[in-house]
Amino acid sequence: MRKERFVIDYQDKVISIRGLYKAFDDFEVLKGVDLDLYRGENLVVLGKSGTGKSVLIKIISGLLRPDAGSVNVLGKDVDKINRKELNALRLKVGFSFQNSALYDSMTVQENLEFPLKRHDPSLTQKQVNSFINIVLEAVGLGQTADQMPSELSGGQRKRIGIARTLILKPDIMLYDEPTAGLDPITSQEINNLINAVQQRFNTSSIIITHDLTCARETGDRLVMLLDGQFQRQGTFDEVFSTDDERVQAFYNYNFID
């Protein structure tokens, strides 16, 4: 199932990365990466495990610092702003973790309340409950509010993780391997959810994945990270219509059409 095209404003860059370098000890992960994300766009970053895809979005969200280069998010240079400005920016950038990263000592309701109440203490409990119902309904898990994360399936945890980021009404969503470890049907549900989030909450997203089904179904544009640089970019068909053996190998070993 191919996604419906969403209106993308190609004049408005919400993320702009130039000459990004990052190394861990002697291992260079990113070697001069350039990337733009436009308002309303779902951009998929493809690549094998260990190629630095997750490092890229951790730098965007300020969890890691780049060694060189600039990362501009919603007009702010992430590496140059102070802590207060970074926190203000982080409220506009949702991050969905590979393993959901739900607070396991809290119920689903408390997981969702926690960021919301802290950033807007003036909200009444009725308003908080209303926001929680909206996001839980959006991810299709309205009945799970009183459950603990350990009582949820992997797919449900992913959905609650996405709900927790949506509750702060972000402009940008960063998905780290959203379908990793899920069965094909649940993966499909997550793909549909990513597209639904884009349309309902008007988000621009970067989706990190090595799952080509996810890439094809959620991405308006794809970029492929190879040897620390983006080697290919375009639509799904454009990226894979090449004789480059590395790209073809990735396609052949990972995708069953």
Partner: peptide, 17 residues
């Protein structure tokens, strides 16, 4: 330690907590 390895601490950080 458990919160660190399951990225719960990172999750707080990216939620501006």
């Amino acid at each position: 330690g458990s919160m660190r390895v399951t990225e719960q601490i990172d999750a707080m950080e990216v939620s501006a907590i």
